[in-house]
Design a protein around this nucleic acid. Structure first.
Length: 212
DNA sequence: TTAGGGTTACTC
DNA sequence: GAGTAACCCTAA
């Protein structure tokens, strides 16, 4: 993830819109002769992106080298490549490697040299370890299936795993281990742990379909 | 915030 | 191509 020559320089701009209301726009220069505009407000899905940029700009570095930001801990979540340990030799077959996601036009990357590429790497791409599964199982034992946010706060507080990740992983575990038919799984789990998953699957059956 | 369908990258 | 696993998307 190496990109050079991109600098973010914040320029706040107050403007009166056609609706008579004042809008606060944020422009930032990319240092390569181009400028991007980021309107604050009237966005939803891209809020994380906007917050990231704002945090960047209002942090200690008003003019920040993007490369440096991407490679340091200034804001680790959305852009760092956390896939490194995914490529270790112990990796088994199946599963996924680096994955891509649609790039948001709000994302500064959109204006970079990947501008023509609609995709960039996804956030985590990190495979679950047996140890993580063990912790997840412990969490489900305590909280049951559903309160993933509580589980996240208690057991995965400093982890990259989100509540949704936990939910998805549990669903995958059930798909792999529910019932007595042993499917081919790519992550080896100790038999007692597998038994525990099966017990919990019985104790906390997966909720019924929400729709359809 | 959560459930569940969908998508995608990967291995066999 | 099938199966797996991680992540995305969105209704509720």
């Amino acid at each position: 993830m190496v990109r050079t020559g991109l600098f973010l320089e914040p320029i706040w701009q107050e403007e009166q819109g056609l609706d008579g209301l004042h809008h606060r726009d944020l422009l930032f220069s990319l240092g390569n002769g181009t400028a991007c505009e980021l309107e604050i407000g009237n966005y939803r899905a891209q809020q994380d992106d906007a917050l990231w940029i704002l945090q960047l700009l209002e942090g200690p570095r008003c003019e920040a080298d993007l490369d440096e930001c991407l490679s340091c801990d200034l804001y680790p979540a959305p852009l760092l490549d956390t896939n490194a340990h995914h490529q270790i030799e112990h990796r088994k077959s199946g599963g996924r490697g680096p994955r891509k996601r649609r790039i948001s036009p709000w994302d500064p990357m959109f204006f970079g040299k990947w501008g023509n590429d609609k995709y960039i790497r996804r956030k985590n791409n990190s495979r679950w370890t047996a140890e993580e599964v063990k912790i997840l199982v412990a969490g489900v034992s305590e909280f049951g299936v559903g309160p993933w946010t509580k589980l996240k706060k208690k057991y995965f507080k400093s982890s990259i795993r989100t509540a949704v990740n936990l939910k998805d992983k549990w669903r995958n575990l059930l798909q792999s281990y529910q019932g007595h038919l042993q499917k081919k799984t790519l992550l080896y789990l100790d038999p007692p742990l597998v038994e525990q998953i099966r017990d919990l699957a019985v104790k906390h059956p997966h909720p019924k379909r929400k729709y359809k």
